[in-house]
Amino acid sequence: MSEHATTMEAAGLKPGFADPVFEAQTTFRTLLNALAYAGRPGMLSTRLDPPHPLGPASAAVALTLFDFETPVWLDAAAAAGGVPDYLRFHTGAPLVAEEGRARFALIADAMQMPPLDRFAIGEDRYPDRSATLIVQVPSLAAGPAVTWRGPGIDGARAVSIAGLPEGFWTQWADNHALYPLGVDIIFTAGQALIGLPRGIEAEG
């Protein structure tokens, strides 16, 4: 295994999961809980060292969910450097240039993220055909408090995600208004992540 990793590093590639079956499983369970209990932070136990600017949680989510069936869109920050090769090699996912064609979007620079309405929102008969955005932020706890309500939350929960662009929550209100259509978001910071499914109403 370490020999394998060294060969890849020599080729300029960072290693993926050391134990793909079990690391993908624990990552998925953290994700399942994050989208079920919206707004509650989940901590990953995986130890990835992905290429800059990809964070370890974003990378773990990518290695757990991406494959040849999922077109992926990368923002300008993620598309620079070693990230595209890393994802192509470890997941085989096709990288696409248009936001609207992507099943997943990986956003490394949240401040510059495109408006949510550029991404696929699904169809009336197939609302599952919508994009999931993986948005990397500096902190999941140090931002302005926003009150979340909806499925998965017993009453209300205050969530303080830092580093989101001006007007993000207005865009989110528009996205939520499309329910049952709309995009879903996974916020990541370091080893932690928080799920924001489309059914959640957020109030600033």
Partner: peptide, 11 residues
């Protein structure tokens, strides 16, 4: 797993 996450997003 992808189907399950979308299923949770649209109960």
């Amino acid at each position: 797993r992808r189907a399950l996450l979308k299923a949770l997003a649209v109960p």
